[in-house]
Design a protein around this nucleic acid. Structure first.
Lengths: 227, 227
DNA sequence: TGAAAGGAATGTTAATTAAGGTTAATGCGT
DNA sequence: ACGCATTAACCTTAATTAACATTCCTTTCA
């Protein structure tokens, strides 16, 4: 389903341009120009994000933001306004706004910021990492479990991260350094030897499926090939 | 505990002002001026947010953002830069940035935007009044009751807070330290052992539902996975 | 050209250290 | 005396370091 944008703007000319531009990016845009109508339309369409002008007839954007926050504490709200003063911006965030764009702005910027906020607020709903198929094995990254048939092996944290990195990059070369940074946070000598140890462990865990192989590429890193 | 900001800026004069200004707002600021040093310091201090200049000696801000994203997909990243072109801004968001501030900017604006991002990325915790579903269990935080079917187990205060913290963060990693601070108010050695004891208790209480698991992440904390 | 030597990178296994788990005993307020 | 919280004692497991083995690339010299 398309992302629904509630767009509150009283300048018809600008409004039309912005609306069409957002629609060309596959957003479902509902434009409202009278502040007093906003809340009922809000309830009706249940938008995924609100883009609010501040100076409006009827009710100003700050008030609208407050009222929207009452109903939905998590809905992303962006102000777009000709008010350029820092105090206006601060007020915008105070009433619950999540971004503040000064007019004139480029459409590109608005779109990028809309997408950014949508992403930020979506990511919050727990990240359900999907299980990954590895040959005859199945790996549940969330639970640190490696399953084959009905046997389950619990992996430790480090084993699990390492396996996940490998599995995400099946059939691609992976830098030793990249792995070290992701698993240990640095690439010191000792951690580098540590990685060797963990590679050995994973090779052992995965040895039941001969189609799986962790190939070392000396001086570079590894390649995780399956099948 | 103070919020840690990683601040990458190569202009010493501006850098000093911004750093002090943020510190006066109770942020714990670590400033780095050489791009090449950033990643090791990142690993060392584990910041809660990163504020990056774009043009830097060594490694530019965009590259840094990419590398940080590799390590932490959720860390808020703000660019502050003299590059005012829309394309530069777009690139900033493309590489994983979450906000983009053009120089010169007011300190107030930076602070407001930092706080906004921190808030957005914090888990919106369910209001502690509502019951929380935990697999086949239901937890009533205000009554300290854990129910399954028609059996009710009364929890003690500490058990209840701990379970609530875990339940609020289902499927996410939770810092040992964070838990200790919230349940005991400090993270001394004895309380740390105490936490072990309570984790054992909760595991025991929840063992009837095999879909529920408290995974320990050694050196980090726990992850409460359900289903 | 190619075989041998040397060295750096990686592999393997084991020993050590540190973190956490479990259960029981003690403390402490009501 | 009771109920929880804390401390203690002992146990288990993961992570790190160490010691020694192997691989494979590079260099050198016949």
């Amino acid at each position: 389903m398309k992302t629904k944008i509630l767009y509150v703007e009283d300048e018809p000319f600008l409004g039309k341009i912005v609306k069409e531009s957002l629609e060309s990016r596959q957003f479902d845009v509902r434009m409202v120009s009278d502040g007093k109508e906003v809340m009922s339309i809000f309830a009706e369409i249940k938008p995924n994000i609100a883009v609010l002008d501040v100076m409006l007839p009827g009710k100003d954007g700050y008030t609208l933001a407050k009222e929207i926050r009452q109903l939905d504490p998590n809905l992303p709200i962006i102000f777009v306004t000709a008010k350029t003063q820092t105090e206006d911006l601060i007020k915008g965030f105070e009433v619950g706004g999540n971004d503040y764009l000064r007019k004139p702005f480029s459409m590109e910027e608005l779109i990028v910021r809309v997408n950014n906020l949508l992403q930020l607020t979506q990511k919050q709903q727990a990240s359900p990492k999907e299980n990954i198929a590895i040959g005859q094995f199945e790996f549940a990254p969330q639970r640190y479990e490696l399953r084959k048939g009905d046997s389950i092996r619990k992996l430790s944290h480090r084993e699990a991260i390492l396996l996940q990195i490998l599995a995400e990059n099946q059939n691609n070369n992976i830098d030793r350094k990249t792995i070290l940074m992701r698993v240990w946070g640095d690439d010191s000598f000792f951690n580098s030897r540590n990685l060797d140890v963990y590679i050995t462990k994973l090779r052992d865990y995965l040895k039941d499926d001969s189609a799986i192989e962790i190939i070392t590429i000396k001086g570079i890193g590894y390649r995780f090939v399956v099948g």
